[in-house]
Amino acid sequence: MRILQLLLVTLMSFGITWSGVHAEETKVKDNEKKLEIPNSVLDISKDNTYPNPSQDVPYLQPSELSQELIDSSNVKIENPKLIKIFNESNISPSPVAIGYRATIYLGQWPLSYESSETSVNWEYQKINTNYTDNRGGKMPQQIHYRQEAQKNIKGGLTSKVENAEDVKEMMMLKAMDKTKLPLSFQTIVGAGTKKDQVYNVPVKKLGYLYAYTPAVSEKGKVTYGEVYLVLKGKNVKIVVKNVTSQGIGAWIPVQDHVSFLYTASDRPR
């Protein structure tokens, strides 16, 4: 109890407050060339019978104070949740702060994510098969996409890490920035979703139209560290100790996009 009282007095003497959840947000910076999407991949956002929520993760803009704290750190800091904490803080120099020294432990955090490889598997998960039997027909028939059953496609990290949700958010931000694709760790294709694009099934053939959900494979490393707020007189800075790095990968589905593969066969598949 005595330690808590001393900590509160120290914080008040420096004019430090931690306020409610409010932060300025901006869109992800567009500094990469847009990925070329194959012709076999179609956008179903207007056709999907299940309305997926938007997953446009905004880039959290640091406040002036937050930027000063980030710049003072000995280790790169990108974690949006940690930046939000900095944004919610207020430090006002006080005459009584002269001569004060304090080190405040803010916890162990995933600080940043560095991407080493980003690629797209356009046939990540098969979600539907439409077929037409024209073996007894005398004229070509047509087949088009219609989703037979609702499909829930989930991505995720390839290994267990601490603070997984923070890591996933940083990885998705980097993947969205590099691919310019609408990404989400979970997306749903509703039953009855269809496209008008048609595929011709020749006479004496079976036509199969396979539908897949694409996903981005994101690989890199995440850096962890113990974060301390160090106050000395009127100066304040961030010091990170016990820094570690860990390799990590993730599969992140592309939201409201379907990849199609059509084939004609003499025999049932």
Rank of each mutant, 00 (worst) to 15 (best):
S159E: 09
S159V: 02
S159T: 10
K160S: 11
K160F: 05
V161E: 02
V161F: 01
V161N: 02
E162M: 09
E162R: 13
E162C: 03
N163M: 10
N163L: 06
N163F: 11
N163K: 12
N163R: 10
E165H: 06
E165A: 10
E165I: 05
D166N: 08
D166T: 01
V167I: 07
V167H: 04
V167Q: 05
E169M: 15
E169D: 11
M170K: 08
M170Y: 07
M170V: 06
M170T: 06
M170C: 07
M171P: 04
M171W: 05
M171N: 04
M171F: 03
M172Y: 09
M172K: 15
K174S: 14
K174E: 09
A175G: 08
A175Q: 06
A175K: 11
M176I: 09
D177T: 12
K178M: 07
K178T: 12
T179M: 08
T179E: 08
T179C: 09
K180D: 12
K180Q: 14
K180S: 08
L181A: 05
L181R: 05
L181D: 04
P182L: 04
P182Y: 04
P182E: 04
L183W: 12
L183F: 10
S184L: 03
S184R: 08
Q186K: 15
Q186E: 15
T187F: 09
T187V: 12
I188S: 13
G190F: 06
G190Y: 06
A191S: 15
A191N: 14
A191M: 15
G192Y: 10
G192P: 11
T193M: 12
T193E: 14
K194N: 14
K194D: 12
K195W: 10
K195C: 08
D196Q: 00
D196G: 04
D196F: 00
Q197E: 12
V198S: 02
V198H: 01
V198Y: 01
V198E: 07
Y199G: 01
Y199V: 01
N200C: 00
N200M: 08
N200T: 15
V201H: 04
V201N: 04
V201I: 07
P202Q: 00
P202M: 00
V203C: 02
V203E: 08
V203R: 07
V203L: 02
K204V: 01
K205T: 02
K205F: 01
K205M: 06
K205D: 00
K205H: 02
K205L: 01
K205A: 02
K205G: 00
K205E: 00
L206E: 01
G207Y: 00
Y208V: 07
Y208H: 03
Y208Q: 05
Y208G: 06
Y208P: 09
L209Q: 10
A211E: 07
A211K: 09
A211P: 07
Y212M: 12
Y212A: 10
Y212D: 13
Y212N: 10
T213C: 14
T213H: 09
P214F: 14
P214M: 13
A215Q: 09
A215R: 06
V216E: 03
V216G: 03
V216A: 03
